[in-house]
Nucleic acid binder design. Sequence first.
RNA 1: GUCAGAGUGGUGAAAUUGGUAUACACGCUAGCCUUAGGAGCUAGUGCCGCAAGGCAUGAGGGUUCGAGUCCCUCCUCUGACACCA
Length: 820
Amino acid sequence: MLNEYDHKKIEAKWQKYWETKKLFAAADKSDKPKYYCLVEFPYPSGDGLHVGHPRSYTAIDILARKRRLQGYNVLYPIGFDAFGLPSENYAIKTGIHPSITTQKNIETFTRQLKALGISFDWSRVIETTDPKYYKWTQWIFLQMYKHGLAYKAKIPINWCLSCKIGLANEEVVGGVCERCGGIVEKREKEQWMLKITKYADRLIADLNTVDYLEKIKTSQINWIGKSEGVNFKEKVKDLDIEFEVYDSIPQTFLAQTFTVIAPEHPLVEKLIKGTEYEKPVREFVKKIKDQKAENRFELENELEGIFTGRYVDNPFGTGDFPIWVASYVLADYGTGIVNCSAHDQRDWDFAKKYSIPLKIALLPKDKKLAEKVKNLEVFYRELDGILQEPEEFKGLSWDKAREPVIRYIEKHKLGKPQVNYKLRDWVFSRQRYWGEPIPMVFCQNCKETGASPDGWVPVAERDLPVKLPDVKKYEPTDNGESPLAEITSWVNTKCPVCGGPAKRETDTMPNWAGSNWYFLRYIDPKNDKHLADSKKMEYWAPVDWYNGGMEHTTLHLLYSRFVYKFLWDIGAVPKNCGSEPYQKRTAHGMILGEGGVKMSKSKGNVINPDQVVTELGADTLRVYEMFMGPFDQAIPWDTKGVIGVRRFIEKVWTIYNGGVKIVPEAQKDLVFLTNKTIKKISQDIETQNYNTAVSALMILANKIIEIGSMDKDVAEVFLKILSPFAPHITEELWEQLGYKKSISCQEWPQFNSALIKEEEVELVVQVNGKFRDRIKVSPDVTEQRVEILARESEKVNKYLEGKVVKNIIFVPGRLINFVI
RNA sequence: GUCAGAGUGGUGAAAUUGGUAUACACGCUAGCCUUAGGAGCUAGUGCCGCAAGGCAUGAGGGUUCGAGUCCCUCCUCUGACACCA
């Protein structure tokens, strides 16, 4: 009678074993080399674990388990990023305190994660909502403030009408609020800002020192959007107004003929005041603003503008530029004012529409085309265009002229070089309850005495954390203040500087605040003196391998690199940890619902991991998620595919439970394939080709069954290389083989390169590149010998008969090709 | 529109990185077994063709002895960002 495969019993047994033996707790002191691998910690939502979570966690678990077998001291921690809107919105709806909901959700997540058999170090769990944790989140804010990186500014922000909070540019998706999908309008509001732009250059440059997927580097670079150009100094004719105009391609400055200004620009009002243009321009500005507010603004459709009646006193002496208000100009990029020439498609279209005269700076080499361009018949902007002015650079191409023209502009004091970034400083204030309070107070007295020019005073470090008080209502107040503003007993406090009455900042931090630095806290999660002990950081930091979603590339990943760099700069992170937090960053693809659409409750296509674990087992779920397709690609869930993997797991069970005999003598074919498989699995784990790794394991299992017997070495190796993927069943079978010590404490097998050297290889014979036959030869056979053997083949001869062989291509170990 | 990525059987996908296209799985077909099954076993399964053989990696061109892989043009999808001067 065969032993039945009972995944429930086996998985519960080994999960308990790992937990009681503390097998995966990382040691802070060890002779072994360290390895720190990390996955993005989850937000514990009320929906429970998504099947997407195990994809990333299993992948890095495989790595962690392999590294342990390879002799590393591995840190693979987990925690919860628990501040956030869903809990707060739930509290608004139900009146249940977010901390209660959060604790409940964390319990669910913990149970679900443990059921997956992921080798997390559960002794280091952190929660961003724990005051002992956010004490240090607040501490980091104070350091930023003290180093001039946190400042309060009244700036136009994205205001979500329904959430009643300010959003970072990065959080507005398609003109609407990323969280609620509500209308976003521009509103002026005092906000705490973090000066990430100060780090922009380093955030680009240091990408050279890390091993990130190329597409991650590219999207960070594009997000930061560094652009080097020139700021021209200009003056409005007949008015005492000066301003600057940014141009990222200043080579063509002598062709500029008009100037456009953003409708929202404060200067617009000054330009038109008291003139006949006042009324129509105001109406136009209002129209555009309204369109933008209602999100009806489609740029591609409409280029609209209106003349202000004013001119720029042209510094280049080529005629004054009329100033137009144009719908397509952004108020918050560059200076909000742009000089236009015929070399930008939009400017060209705009000028055509309103019959504004244009000049040409670049002419193509092609004479016919040059004539058309000159007559303004066609739009032209090419890198190999020839510059016409200024005279001393005439004949240079656009890209070659760039540097000399910039120097020329500087020399003639027409403007100065200016670097602009697409990246904005980070709006760090939220008018919300469920976040870390910003540890600042406002003191009128200190403002008056000048102790603090703007009245803002940091809370003393010894008074951290500033704990989040209980409130009765969780809604933001009607004027947009955080619900904290209504708790006067909390708001009214003493100024840490003068001791006089002061008021607390009632804004809280965004949900990225806690995830900026969490990987440092795992190193020393219970430290109450520092965010983490220096010695421990020196040992563990930086993270060796960090995996997460592609969607976090430009927000979380960039923000946390910035915060880490800052902490490193001020010495809060030891110098020898290096200036980058993550040595390697990879990204996993999403798991979609069946049919390739996103899983969502409303579509009813959500797969519950609990159910899969209960019915088919964690090992099956893990192996399936690794097998389903390329790791970095979005893949639809396939219920039938899971069953295929379950069959494989059962097959493995059968092999070790009477299906295959363990015999003393080694089987040559099997030893060969086993060694090849060790090599493949070892490589595939490093390159994240988990799907082909699983397929290799299946091929080996099929081979073992086909042969019907295996020696003990093969029996052991197979379990060892399968164990990172399917840890429970392999532990059980390992024990069945008679071993007392867990398979998690063994050594990762080495392949024997002598054994994977083939004694005979199959060589392909081609005629004119077409496959005709294959012949078996020894690997070091000579070309002459192969040619003779190939010509002996009838199939080949058929094609060679009566033909002249012009050439023979011979690739050792691969093929011979007759060219006739 | 910009940037990035991708198009291979009925499906998810492999392809030693320029060298036998379709590994491994799912599904399907036939047979066996079973009281029954998300069960098991055996054989088959890219397309056309009785066969010999021919044709197939989004379309078209090119480089090469040889292209899924490299180059050019185009088409289609996916994701991110929205007027970035």
